[in-house]
Design a protein around this nucleic acid. Structure first.
Length: 414
RNA sequence: GGAGGGAUGCCCGAGUGGCUAAAGGGGACGGGCUGUAAACCCGUUGGCUAUGCCUACGUUGGUUCGAAUCCAACUCCCUCCA
C-alpha cells in the first residue's frame, strides 16, 4: 500500500516491512502525532550481532521520523528462553551471566539511538522490573485466562517444535505469554502502541496486541521485518570466527568492515537500503554498477555500515587498512595485531604455534592442515613446511604478518 | 504405572563384534577460477611433545584377545496404553 507517514514511507522504501497488523491504522497514527514503539532483546549473549541490526535500525528510523523508541532488555524473559526458531531448548543462563550480558548490550544502543528525557528521546527498560515480581496465581487469573492453549499450540514457535518431535518445556511454552504481557505493561506505563521485531516474532507480537485489547480495550500495532538472509539463502551473520558481533571487543571494526565488503553481488542494493542511510537515488545508482565496478558499491556499503556501528573514524581506518592489504599488496600497520614475547622468537617459535597464538587457528592441527592446503603465509610468502620456526629474521618493520587464507591477516608484534 | 522405540562427530544420518577417528549428505574452512562476489571444480574437517600416543558413538559397569556394535543398571527423549 501507499503510506503517507514519514516513518512507514521510509521503512517501506528501504525494504524493511514484512507484515503489519493494521497498516492503515498505523499509518494514520504515525501521521497523527508522536507514537511510542518498542523492540525487545533477550540477553543471551554478551553482544548483539548483525541479525539484530535490522530491528535496531527500525528503532532508529522510528526516532528519526519523530517518534519515541523503547528498547526493552529482556532481563526477565531471558530467564525463560524464547522457543521461536529453535529446535532445542536453550541452556538456561545464570542470573550472573544475564546481568553481565545486559551491561555489555546496553552500550550498543547508544550508537544508534539518542537517549534522554525529551518527548522523542529513546528509553531503555528491563522487563525483569515487572516480570520477576509477578504472583503466579494472580497472574494466571488476571492474564492466563485470556490465552487459549488450543491457539497457543497453533503458533509456529510451538508447532514446529512439536512437529519435529522436539521437546518443548512448559517453561518455554510460557514465553509468549510473558512477551504478550510485556506489551500490555509497556502500553500502560509508557503509552506504547507499537511492537516491532523479526518475522519470527509475529506470533509473540500478535499475542501482545490481543492481550492489550482484551485487558484494557486499547488497540496497538505490530510490525515485522523479514529475517536477514543472503540471496543464496544462507543465514546471514556467520563468519569463520563465529557470529558477526556489534561490540568491537567481540569483533574488531576491521573485521566488521570486511564482513560487509564480502557481500554477495545480488545483495548489494538491498543491503545499502537496509543498512546505510545513503539517499535512495544514490543507492539505485550504486546498485546498477556491473562486474568489478560493483566492488566500489561494496566498499561504500562497508564503510557506511561500519560508521554507524563503530564510528566514522574506525570505518575509514578499516577501509584504508583493507586498501593497503588487498590492493597495495602490502602490509598495513593497522591490521589486527597480537603481542608476543621477544624470548619466544629468540629460541624459535613454531610456525603452527604462531598461528594458534595469533588466534587464526584453533589448534596446531588446524594450522597444520592450513599449511598442507597451501593457505598459510608468513610475510606474504606461502609456507609448506609444518616444522618451520619463526625467528627474529622474520620480523619486518617490527612485525610478522601471518595470513590464514587470502582474507584473514594478523600481525605478531614482538 | 505399563508396553514399545530411540540417544553416533558442528548438524542430519549410516553402521549392529575386528578392515571404524566411524559411510553419505549438509555446513564450515583452505586451494583453483574470479572482482576480497556468486556459481563451479579440487582438498580438508578430534587432540597431541606425532611413522607413535590419547580422547570419542547418552552414563556407569560387565562379557571378550578385541565393543559404537553383545549384556546389565541408570539418565534423558519419543509414541501408544492406564
Amino acid at each position: 500500500m501507499d503510506y503517507t507517514s514519514e516513518f512507514l514511507k521510509t521503512l517501506n522504501a528501504r525494504g524493511y516491512i514484512a507484515q503489519c497488523t493494521d497498516d492503515k491504522a498505523l499509518d494514520a497514527a504515525t501521521n497523527d502525532g508522536i507514537i511510542t514503539g518498542y523492540i525487545g532483546y533477550d540477553c543471551t549473549a554478551p553482544s548483539l550481532h548483525v541479525g539484530n541490526l535490522i530491528s535496531i535500525l527500525m528503532l532508529r528510523h522510528l526516532q528519526q521520523a519523530g517518534h519515541r523508541p523503547i528498547v526493552v532488555i529482556g532481563g526477565g524473559t531471558t530467564k525463560v528462553g524464547d522457543p521461536s526458531g529453535k529446535d532445542e531448548s536453550r541452556q538456561l543462563l545464570t542470573q550472573d551471566k544475564i546481568d553481565e550480558n545486559k551491561k555489555t548490550i546496553r552500550a550498543t544502543f547508544e550508537r544508534f539511538l539518542t537517549f534522554g528525557d525529551g518527548p522523542t528521546d529513546a528509553i531503555m527498560v528491563d522487563n525483569d522490573e515487572w516480570l520477576s515480581d509477578l504472583n503466579y496465581i494472580e497472574f494466571l487469573r488476571d492474564y492466563g485466562r485470556h490465552f487459549s492453549v488450543n491457539r497457543m499450540m497453533s503458533f509456529d514457535s510451538v508447532k514446529l517444535r512439536l512437529d519435529r518431535e522436539q521437546p518443548l518445556s512448559f517453561l518455554e511454552f510460557n514465553y509468549m505469554i510473558l512477551q504478550a504481557y510485556d506489551f500490555l505493561e509497556l502500553n500502560r506505563r509508557y503509552d506504547c502502541t507499537l511492537q516491532m521485531g523479526g518475522s519470527d516474532q509475529w506470533g509473540n507480537i500478535v499475542n501482545g496486541i490481543e492481550l492489550t485489547r482484551r485487558c484494557d480495550q486499547n488497540s496497538v500495532f505490530g510490525l515485522t521485518t523479514n529475517l536477514l538472509t543472503t540471496s543464496s539463502g544462507a543465514k546471514m551473520g556467520k563468519t569463520a570466527q563465529g557470529a558477526v558481533w556489534l561490540n568491537d571487543d567481540m569483533l574488531p571494526a576491521y573485521d566488521y568492515w570486511q564482513f560487509w565488503r564480502n557481500t554477495e553481488d545480488a545483495d548489494v542494493g538491498r543491503f545499502l537500503r537496509l543498512f546505510t542511510e545513503l539517499p535512495l537515488d544514490e543507492i539505485s545508482r550504486l546498485e546498477k554498477l556491473e562486474g568489478a565496478e560493483l566492488n566500489d558499491a561494496k566498499k561504500i556499503l562497508a564503510t557506511e555500515a561500519t560508521a554507524m556501528c563503530h564510528g566514522r573514524d574506525a570505518a575509514e581506518k578499516a577501509e584504508a587498512t583493507a586498501r593497503d592489504t588487498f590492493e597495495g599488496g602490502g602490509t598495513s600497520a593497522d591490521l589486527p595485531s597480537v603481542a608476543i614475547e621477544a624470548k619466544q622468537l629468540a629460541k624459535g617459535l613454531g610456525l603452527l604455534e604462531a598461528f594458534v597464538i595469533a588466534g587464526l587457528a584453533k589448534s596446531n592441527g588446524e594450522a597444520r592442515r592450513l599449511v598442507q592446503g597451501g593457505g598459510a603465509k608468513v610475510n606474504d610468502t606461502a609456507q609448506d613446511d609444518t616444522t618451520a620456526t619463526l625467528t627474529e629474521a622474520d620480523v619486518q618493520d617490527g612485525t610478522i604478518k601471518l595470513s590464514f587464507g587470502k582474507k584473514r591477516h594478523v600481525l605478531l608484534r614482538p
